[in-house]
């Protein structure tokens, strides 16, 4: 009975927190009464969302498409790169500094370059989403491969296993939890990348919508756009988290045991 209550509380907690945030926001509007173009009330933001829901949804779909394509490419390249640099210490030592360098470059600064190469609109948005999302995936997969217990490798090698055997039987399954954990981070970064690029060089997408709304001081519309991005981010995060538990339940067994297993 008690465990049941705790489970229910765990499920409700995020909604309570979000509702609390909106309540504080609305209360702040009542107390400080700022002008709506500085900080609109949640009610006003909701009103904007209803008024402009068709264009907002169209732009959101555009952003979502760019994000998911960029994220997909990020998974593909990130996983392969991770396997590549994780498979040997020499390669790891050689490539890691370069990866850090690439990751340190602010992606907003690269967008103009991508525009020169790819034009405006969808291509640079996809490319930016990709550039932000592949890194955590590659680093995590490489880390997963590097943490295989040496004794386990001894067991396999003493059976005459080839490097490929060790990779497919032990290293890759072992790094799957790292891979799925990195997806959750990568997908939210992919949104960041797509929106940055749309803000700088696009005539579609939430980023473009925000820029247009800002130029007309329609702050409530900007907030509506932000909230839609946040909602999509949470949605894709939850999908990745669900896949993670499904695929690598053995690594998060404590969680699944407490919640009664899946």
């Amino acid at each position: 009975m008690k465990a049941k209550h705790r489970k229910l509380a765990e499920k409700l907690a995020p909604w309570v927190v979000i509702a609390g945030l909106f309540t504080i926001w609305q209360a702040a509007i009542f107390i400080f009464n700022p002008r709506p173009f500085i900080l609109p009330s949640p009610a006003l933001v909701y009103q904007s969302f209803i008024d402009y829901r068709d264009p907002i949804m169209a732009h959101a779909l555009f952003t979502l498409t760019n994000t998911l394509i960029g994220f997909g490419l990020g998974i593909l390249v990130g996983a392969m790169l991770g396997i590549f640099i994780g498979s040997s210490r020499l390669i790891y030592a050689g490539f890691y500094p370069l990866l850090i360098g690439i990751n340190s470059v602010p992606k907003a600064a690269v967008v103009p370059l991508l525009v020169i190469w790819l034009g405006i609109g969808q291509p640079p948005a996809i490319a930016t989403a990709f550039l932000l999302s592949f890194f955590p995936i590659a680093v995590n997969v490489a880390a997963g491969l590097a943490t295989v217990e040496p004794e386990l490798e001894d067991v396999l090698r003493s059976l005459g296993a080839s490097k490929l055997d060790v990779l497919t039987k032990v290293s890759l399954p072992r790094s799957l939890p790292y891979f799925f954990a990195s997806l959750k981070v990568a997908v939210t970064l992919a949104f960041v990348g797509a929106v940055i690029s749309e803000t700088l060089a696009s005539n579609d997408g939430i980023g473009y919508l925000m820029l247009q709304a800002a130029s007309q001081f329609r702050t409530s519309l900007m907030f509506a756009g932000l909230l839609v991005i946040a909602a999509m981010g949470i949605g894709t995060y939850l999908i990745c988290a669900f896949i993670e538990v499904r695929m690598t339940g053995w690594a998060t067994r404590k969680q699944t045991q407490v919640t009664g297993g899946g």
Partner: peptide, 18 residues
């Protein structure tokens, strides 16, 4: 080189958790 006629077991069971 590594022999192929051996079996090994250690203090740590080193089973594959998946």
């Amino acid at each position: 080189g590594p022999l192929k006629i051996t079996g090994m077991a250690f203090q740590n069971p080193t089973l594959l958790p998946w």
